[in-house]
Structures are given as C-alpha cells and as structure tokens.
Design a binder for these strands. Structure first.
Length: 418
RNA sequence: GGCCCCAUGGUCAAGCGGUUAAGACACCGCCCUUUCACGGCGGUAACCCGGGUUCGAGUCCCGGUGGGGUCACCA
C-alpha cells in the first residue's frame, strides 16, 4: 500500500488557533499511526492578511505541542528553512507553478479570463440580494472569446481567471467521517482561481499543491465542506487521482459558536502561558471530536498515535470545556517528571518575585520540594504562585499551627525551615 | 434566504435493531484528611418532535424543528 502523506497548511495571519492545533493533531496522529509522512505547508496567498512573524510563531507552537513533521517549513537558528522533495512549501514561492496550471485550464476551456471589476461584482450581488436571489457571479465574461480576452490583457486591463463549471452537474465525493456528499454545480460559483495580483486563491493552490506533494488524505475543518466540490472538479479536469477527504467537526465555545479571538483564550500560546502542559492540551484536544475504543481518557501522544482512527471521529461539533481541560491537565502535572515540572514552574515564581537567580542556584532542591508539594493541588502551572506564596517571606512560622493547617503535608516543615 | 452538515444528560461521549442507555468532566451528598486538594463511595441528570420499516427502534427511511457551516480577487 502506498504511504500516506498528510499535511497541515495554515495561513500566516496570526497565532496558531486551538482549532488549528486540533486539525494539525489529527493529521499528525493519522500519519504517524500509518507510518506515513506529515508535512507543514504555508498558505500565504493573501498578501493583505500576512502577519510578520506568524510563520515562526506557528512553527513554535507546533513544536511546543510536540507535533513533528517530516517535510516543509522549519525554523533553524532563527531562520526559516525548507526541507523536502516537494518544495517550495511556501505558496508565495510557487507562483510560476500555479500559473502553468491556470494556463492549462484556460487552454482546455475549463477556465476563463474575467475582467469584471470589484465594484461591478459588488453591485451585481447587491441587486441579486434585493431581488431575493442568491448572490452569484452572473457569468458576464464566461462567453468572451479567448482572442478578445487576450487582446484586452494586451491592452493592460486587469483580470482574474475563473473556473468554468459545467451547468447542473452533480459533483460527488466521499468523506471519511461524513459519508457520500453530493452538491450540484448550480449552487456553486465560478470560483476565482487566479487573482488580479497574480496570486492563486486557496481553491487553486490547495489542489495543485496537494497533488504535486502527493497528499493522500486531506484533513481539515468542516467549513471547507461546501467548497470541496470545486476542488474535486479541478482534480477531475486535471485528470488527477483524488485524495481522501476528511472534514472535522468544529471546536465550539460555550455559546456554541466557532472559537474566535473575540472570546479570548484561543491561541495555543495563551494556554502555554497559563501553564498548561503540551501533553495536557493535546490530550484534551484529541478528546474533543474523537474517543478511543477503550474509552481511556488520559493518554500520551504515543498512545494517541496508537489508538487514533477516523472511524471514531464524531460528526458533531464539540464545546471546548475548560473544566475538563483542567482535569486532564492535572493528571499530566501529577505524573510529570519533577525536574521538568520544576523547570517549568521557575519562570512563574520568578515573575512573581518569589525567587531570583541566586535563590535558584542556592536552593534548587528546596524549590523542587516545593513543586512536589503543591503539584497535586494545581491544574495549571501558573497556579503555583498562589499555592507557593505562603512559603515565602516568613509569612508563616513553623509554629503557626493555624496557618499551617491550610497546607500541612509531609514536606511542609522541611520547606519552612529552609 | 439558497446549499451543505449535524442532533444521546449542563459538557465531552460510548452505542452501530433486542442494554437496567456505559464512562468522564461539572454539580450534590458521604468517607478519608488537624484544613484544602488528591483519593474512595454514592446521587441528580439524556436518546429533539412526528410519521413510517420491523416481532422489536437511540440505532434504518421520510418529514418537521433546532443548531452550526457556507455562499469573496480570505483562508
């Protein structure tokens, strides 16, 4: 059997999102479960949304989470590098490739030049809405002859290239978690494939790249389901073998809406700063939308890889539950290597001005004992500050029975006498 | 609004024609503990509605309803 190849393909428009992390995770788990490859590709075809440093950030977050990939974009010594046979892995560096395939489509009559201005398009859509119609491209440039189009281009007119969809054709595809999906071309627009700035849209780039990079399984959020027929159609006209599609259920907030920046706490970085362990976040996230056959809930990455399958991915969107995340994270904290945990705790204690470098050097073992003592009562590492505070600055005397009663444990006297 | 997807306790979820409908989080009791936490024991709580199919539907089909997604030169 052919090796499976999967990819995570975020766009560098900000930080890695919790939903994005789960998508990356499921891709990774499936790839590793099948001893296949996992690739990181950067989809930066929208120049207006590009955020400086976003690529480095994305990679940093994936690395922190323990999601490793075999090919694609990496950061080495602070610089972005690419590794693999199918590069470049940054779409803005593949413009000539897309151009070639766009030309092929035009030649075959499966795409056409369109000169409609943004203003005209807006106006058309506005009028359609008023009439109660579905906003859709009216096809003005569809019938333009190639010669005429080329002449207008020669005259310096701006243009885009649109996909020429056949009328009233059912496009079918199979989704591993949703089964058979049929959508009629009547309900889809003649999608823009090449923008006027010469960059491809997602719809063209994703198909070309996934094919060229040998991607076997496309695993992404279900918001892509409605545009999948466009992609499927492109595979058909190019005569390429179609990948297997897997559309994942959405991760929702307590309002049952897609997680968004407005509600806060959606970037992986936020959770890292709050002191969640990567193992805890990953473990919990795996459980939103998937469950193992044995219903075990505390799982390491290796166990997740071993047990993961798309057959057990649910169709329903799941709410991101902070309480349960805390519970999962607590388990990982308790079982964590004490030295690693101490290392993670130190920055929080430092920031709270409870300890300094000198203190760390002189009393590392004391700090370790402290961490050991309080680790059972915290659900994220940042909470250690509150729990540890009482041991500092002579807030409590070893004789103070009443104060001690708050936290008396086997190590308490040891800590206080230090 | 058109199209698409979805529907088991408050939440995550087992279930894939016959079960007293698991388990976990949260919540509420009790126990343990000089307190808290951890741990242990127990409890409250669910198959959206209506039609079919079937000897028998949470499970299959159809229709409603509800929720979500999508209708860009954004991904």
């Amino acid at each position: 059997m052919k090796d499976v190849r999967l990819r995570f393909a975020p766009s560098p428009t900000g930080y890695l999102h919790i939903g994005g992390l789960r998508t990356a995770l499921y891709n990774y788990l499936f790839a590793k479960h099948n001893n296949g490859q996992f690739i990181l590709r950067i989809e930066d075809t929208d120049r207006t949304r590009y955020v400086e440093g976003a690529i480095e950030n994305l990679i940093e977050s994936l690395q922190w989470a323990g999601i490793e990939y075999d090919e694609g974009v990496f950061v080495e010594e602070g610089k972005i590098v690419q590794r693999g046979e199918c590069g470049p892995y940054i779409q803005s560096e593949r413009l000539d490739i897309y151009r070639k395939y766009v030309d092929e489509l035009i030649e075959k009559g499966d795409a056409y030049y369109c000169f409609c201005s943004k203003e005209r398009l807006d106006k058309v859509r506005e009028e359609q809405k008023i009439k109660g119609l579905i906003p859709k491209y009216d096809g003005l440039c569809r019938s333009l002859s190639l010669d005429e189009a080329k002449e207008r281009i020669a005259n310096g007119e701006e243009y885009v290239v649109r996909l020429k969809l056949p009328a009233k054709k059912d496009i079918k595809f199979k989704d591993l978690v949703r089964g058979d999906i049929v959508i009629n071309t009547e309900d889809i627009d003649d999608q823009v494939l090449l923008k006027s700035d010469g960059y491809p849209t997602y719809h063209l780039a994703v198909v070309v790249d996934d094919h060229l990079m040998g991607i076997t399984h496309i695993v992404r959020g279900e918001e892509w389901l409605p545009s999948t027929p466009k992609h499927v159609y492109l595979y058909e006209v190019f005569g390429w073998e179609k990948p297997t599609y897997v559309h994942l259920p959405t991760v929702l907030n307590k309002e049952r809406k897609k997680l968004s920046k407005r509600h806060g706490d959606v970037s992986v970085e936020d959770f890292r700063e709050k002191g969640y362990l990567p193992e805890g976040l990953i473990n919990y996230l795996a459980l939103v939308g998937w469950s193992p056959e044995d219903n075990e809930e505390i799982l390491s990455m290796d166990e997740l890889i071993e047990k993961f399958s798309f057959e057990r991915v649910s169709k329903t969107g799941g709410i991101f539950d902070r309480d349960k995340l805390d519970w999962v994270n607590e388990h990982h904290i308790r079982n964590y290597d004490i030295d690693k945990l101490t290392q993670l705790a130190i920055p929080y204690l430092k920031e709270a001005n409870l300890i300094d470098d000198k203190f760390i050097e002189e009393k590392y073992d004391w700090i370790k004992t402290l961490v050991e003592t309080v680790k059972e009562s915290i659900s994220s590492i940042s909470e250690i500050v509150d729990k540890a505070d009482i041991f500092f600055n002579n807030k409590v005397e070893p004789e103070d029975e009443e104060a001690l009663s708050v936290l008396k444990q086997e190590h308490v006297s040891e800590l206080l006498n230090a």
